[in-house]
Design a protein around this nucleic acid. Structure first.
Length: 338
DNA sequence: CGCATTTGACCAGCGC
DNA sequence: GCGCTGGTCAAATGCG
């Protein structure tokens, strides 16, 4: 029962979190560089969710959404983890494959799909409201009907790959672990977490990549319906509702982050070219790429910067983002020794 | 004492 | 129909 994962956003910053699911306006469709319509000024150590976040329908990818908080996570300090390392392109591909097992290359309804993808997609017509799901959950608890006639409709999911030694990354939200399972083809168990906030049905799964144990794959499902209860080091936050992404923000940092530019690492020959198109990056120190190595339907976000630990000053925190080290594409191919 | 984690059991979906 | 696997529940346990 191979499952295809959701799209994977790979980052070295464990703060992968708070993001998620919502259809990505196809208007953002593109096939190369993605210029996140997010402005940032990053001064208080954070990116905020200042503006809107654009997103993609790359190579058939749609139905995705990246909560602006995504940006946060890229510059939010991670807990105690070890020195972050850059993830060379190769590994990205590998991971991508691992996580995105057999998918349907030509399928446009990539929507987050995973196990229940099939069903979800069929029923996805009737958009699921968070409340509905919660009701279902309640019902479940009572009769344990679980997925039945009313097969549970899942919200789009987002997977993030993070190089970290800690499994459960601190993303600012409070999570309660409700299960752990051994997963097939992986020596590492998968942990299931649910947002502890009442009425917030966001869930996330955390597991390590069997290929690269240093990689933690965090899959988020759902959208938080509340402000981030915790702003670790004042760096986490979610997109303001005004953005239309349903997020609620309470970031303690500047909400007008400088433009973030991402580029989509196309699967074929364009890949390298794309990577070299740094001019696309307004902020040359930070880049995030989408990679659809094996399966174009599942992009992989690759953060090209090593994690920058929080500093005592907000300005420095900001640097955590702005001073990221850019890794030339060629370096990806040839992982440097540390 | 309250909350989070652990862990075995249970259930549903899927492939054969 | 059966077995496998993923996902969830909930009692037991741990911890602050």
């Amino acid at each position: 029962m191979e499952k295809k994962e959701d799209q994977v956003i790979k980052t070295d910053n464990p703060m992968a979190n708070s993001m998620f699911s919502e259809p990505i306006p196809t208007s953002f469709a593109s096939s190369g560089i993605f210029d996140m319509p997010c402005e940032l000024e990053g001064e208080k150590g954070g990116v905020g969710g200042g503006g809107s976040l654009g997103f993609v329908d790359m190579l058939g990818i749609q139905d995705y959404f990246c909560n602006p908080s995504l940006f946060d996570m890229f510059q939010t300090p991670m807990p105690p983890p070890p020195p972050q390392q850059l993830i060379p392109s190769p590994s990205v591909q590998e991971l991508s494959e691992v996580v995105n097992t057999p998918a349907t290359p030509n399928s446009l309804s990539v929507s987050s799909s995973s196990a229940e993808a099939g069903n979800d997609e069929k029923e996805s017509k009737t958009t699921v409201e968070g409340e509905e799901e919660q009701d279902q959950e309640k019902t479940k608890k009572q009769l344990k009907p679980k997925k039945k006639s009313n097969k549970r409709e899942r919200e789009p999911r987002f997977a993030f790959m993070t190089r970290s030694e800690v499994d459960h990354l601190d993303d600012g939200y409070r999570w309660r672990k409700y299960g752990q399972k051994a997963v097939k083809n992986s020596p590492f168990p998968r942990s299931y977490y649910r947002c502890t906030t009442a009425a917030c049905g966001v869930k996330k799964r955390v597991e390590r990549s069997s290929d690269d144990p240093t990689i933690v794959v965090t899959t988020y499902e759902g959208t938080h319906t509340h402000p981030c209860p915790v702003t670790p080091r004042g760096s986490i936050g979610i997109m303001p509702e005004s953005t239309g992404f349903g997020g609620i923000g309470t970031s303690s940092f500047n909400l007008n982050p400088p433009p973030r530019h991402y580029y989509y690492q196309q699967q074929h020959h364009q890949q390298q070219q794309q990577q070299q198109q740094q001019p696309y990056f307004h902020n040359p120190t930070t880049s995030l790429s989408f990679s659809t190595t094996t399966n174009p339907t599942f992009p992989t976000f690759v953060q090209e910067r090593p994690f920058c630990p929080p500093s005592s000053s907000s300005s420095l925190m900001d640097h955590g983002l702005l001073q990221d080290i850019i890794v030339p594409s060629h370096m990806w191919k040839e992982p440097k020794e540390e």
